[in-house]
Design a protein around this nucleic acid. Sequence first.
DNA 1: CACGACCTTGACATAGTGTCAAGTGATATC
DNA 2: GATATCACTTGACACTATGTCAAGGTCGTG
Lengths: 196, 196
Amino acid sequence: MADDRRSTRDRILQACWRLLEEGDGGQTRMSDVAKAAGVSRQAVYLHFSNRAELLVAVTRFIDARSEIDARLAASRQASCGLERLDAFIEAWGNYIPVVHPVCRALLEMAPGDEAARLAWDDRMTALREGCEAAVNALASDNELSAQHPASAATDLLWTLLSIRNWEQLVEGCGWAQVAYVAEMKRLARLAITKPS
Amino acid sequence: MADDRRSTRDRILQACWRLLEEGDGGQTRMSDVAKAAGVSRQAVYLHFSNRAELLVAVTRFIDARSEIDARLAASRQASCGLERLDAFIEAWGNYIPVVHPVCRALLEMAPGDEAARLAWDDRMTALREGCEAAVNALASDNELSAQHPASAATDLLWTLLSIRNWEQLVEGCGWAQVAYVAEMKRLARLAITKPS
DNA sequence: CACGACCTTGACATAGTGTCAAGTGATATC
DNA sequence: GATATCACTTGACACTATGTCAAGGTCGTG
């Protein structure tokens, strides 16, 4: 029974994920998810009290299945600031395509939905903390550009690595994922580290 | 009569603009606009067949009142590529805060509304053409970085100057408008021009 | 058997967009 | 001066998606 319970919940999450990846983007409706999961619309509400909560649960579901923590941990073990910056961009930049479908849906509903907005802000705050840590590592190695205070460097890195920028370059301009990551590494160095 | 007609239409546009600037962002509804313009909700539909059309009309209304064409024309008359790049960033970057409230509304409805999406794409295509022209001017002066083909440099400049990035830095991180413009100029040079 | 957990069915409230039809009042035209 | 036309009002309606509620069904377990 406990197994069945998890299996229904998981089937909903899985179906939602699949629809977000395949479908027309964030326009996936609760009834679509229900149908895809082979369950009634109300069953979805028994597990997730609203759409925002479902989407947030899907992001966690994805996080758990994609070793994101491990990848980010690797970046924290880099031996110097520059290496850490590269590793961080590599980890995050390659994670974006995975979570992007859900992020898109969350982002689309954020303007009109407090819960979605908070969930999104949480995610972005976590990203900013990662950027801040990378900037601090650069500062420790005295590799940080003298152009700005560390907070401004963090702002820049955070903005550079935003999901919107990935969308525009990879989906909008047709850049290959590896080209995107390589270019972000190059730009980050130019923007916030000392000229070599 | 012809005067009255334009005055009602203009009152609607003006009211909509004001609400978008003051209000909670793109959540402004048709009935809000009607009320603010002192007109019935249906009167709004007599002038604009749907919300997307109204928003597009507001952007044109703003364009007309903000000498954007003149500012951009100035950037086209720059005597060298680098100067032109700066002038373009100056013109566009300082225009963003003016149109931003409407762009935000248009952007928020774009995912679910074909008309809004097309209108947005149009605007962004125009911006991209401006970026492309600036990149070409740099190429003519042999000032373009050898890192990428011109199209990739255009992609980068276009992405750098996106409204989302302005939102994040100015509204999200609290950067002053002048700091934003200055930093975009610096980054654009680093990203796509030859190192000096 | 009876209970409870999980799920279904179907009805309902709500919010906002866009449509429709009938009516009003001022202005222009014959 | 009657009449037609234009710009607008009023009020009702259809539609879509979210989220809520109540009543009932099914299955495993005590």
